[in-house]
Computed example of a mutant assay.
Amino acid sequence: MGSLFEELEAREAAARVRVEGLEAELAELSGKLDLAREGLERLRITRETVAEVLAEMPPEKSAATFDADRTTASELAASAYAGAERHVVGVLTVPKWQPGMGMEVLPQVYRDIVEVVADAPGPARAKQIVPRIGLPAETGKIEGTRSKLKRLVERGWLDEDTPGLFTSARRRTAKSPNSR
């Protein structure tokens, strides 16, 4: 009889683990459902607010601003923000270097990195650059800076002759004899 009770206890333990796993999945899905409901509610409120604004506008102005049959969503968005200053948040644009282009086209953090590399007595590593641009020497900051350095290399602002060692770009204005 002892082995039967042991088998039942083992099955009970396995069932308990399965229930706990399902409860964890349910909690995760409940969180996702709550976020989706919040997004839906925000969209509903936005739609109602736009309808109220359009209802309060004089007919000739609202017709000029929005004609549901002929106005695309992008046209509506453009008219809603006409004259407003546009700022892109969270996107840094690093243009490809071209002759005559100055560092002022780079976002500030990239400018700082290029300046530190230019001032370095020799090739610089990401972990040497991080404290010089005012960041703590933590792994995350070093890796983020390394990715920025790689991006600057890809776009022609810096060189990386040896992996992990960055130098100022040697501009190639004329074709070298070895190039095609």
Rank of each mutant, 00 (worst) to 15 (best):
G2R: 11
G2D: 05
S3F: 05
F5R: 10
E6H: 11
E9C: 14
E9R: 14
R11N: 15
A14M: 06
A15G: 11
R16T: 14
V17H: 09
V17P: 07
R18I: 14
R18N: 10
V19H: 13
E20K: 06
E20V: 09
E20L: 12
L22E: 02
E23G: 03
L26S: 03
L26I: 10
K32I: 03
K32C: 13
K32W: 08
L33V: 07
L33T: 04
L35R: 14
R37D: 12
E38D: 04
E38I: 04
G39D: 12
G39I: 04
G39A: 07
L40G: 10
L40M: 13
L40R: 10
R42C: 04
R42G: 01
L43G: 06
L43S: 08
R44D: 08
R44L: 02
T46D: 15
T46Y: 13
R47W: 05
E48K: 07
T49C: 04
A51C: 09
M57G: 06
M57A: 03
M57R: 07
P58E: 10
P58W: 08
P59K: 01
P59F: 03
K61R: 15
K61D: 12
S62A: 08
S62V: 03
S62R: 07
A63D: 03
A64C: 05
T65Q: 14
D67F: 07
D67A: 02
D69Q: 09
R70M: 12
R70H: 09
A73D: 12
S74G: 14
E75H: 03
E75M: 04
E75C: 09
L76W: 00
L76R: 03
A77V: 11
A78K: 09
S79F: 11
A80V: 06
Y81M: 10
A82E: 11
R86K: 15
R86G: 15
V89C: 05
V89G: 07
V89H: 10
G90A: 15
G90L: 05
L92F: 14
L92T: 13
T93H: 14
V94C: 02
P95I: 11
G100M: 06
M103F: 12
V105W: 02
V105Q: 08
V109H: 01
V109D: 04
V109F: 03
Y110N: 06
R111T: 01
D112S: 08
I113P: 00
I113H: 00
V116L: 01
V117C: 02
V117K: 00
A120N: 05
A120Y: 05
P123M: 13
R125Y: 04
A126N: 01
Q128N: 14
V130Y: 00
R132N: 04
G134Y: 02
L135V: 08
L135Q: 06
P136M: 07
A137E: 14
K141E: 12
S147Y: 10
K148F: 02
L149D: 00
K150F: 11
K150S: 11
R151A: 10
R151N: 06
R151L: 07
L152Y: 00
V153K: 05
E154I: 04
E154K: 08
G156A: 02
W157I: 00
W157R: 00
D159N: 10
E160H: 02
T162Y: 08
T162S: 15
L165P: 13
F166H: 01
F166E: 00
S168G: 05
A169P: 03
R170F: 09
R170T: 14
R172Q: 12
T173A: 15
A174N: 11
A174C: 14
S176Q: 15
S176D: 13
P177L: 03
N178P: 11
R180D: 14
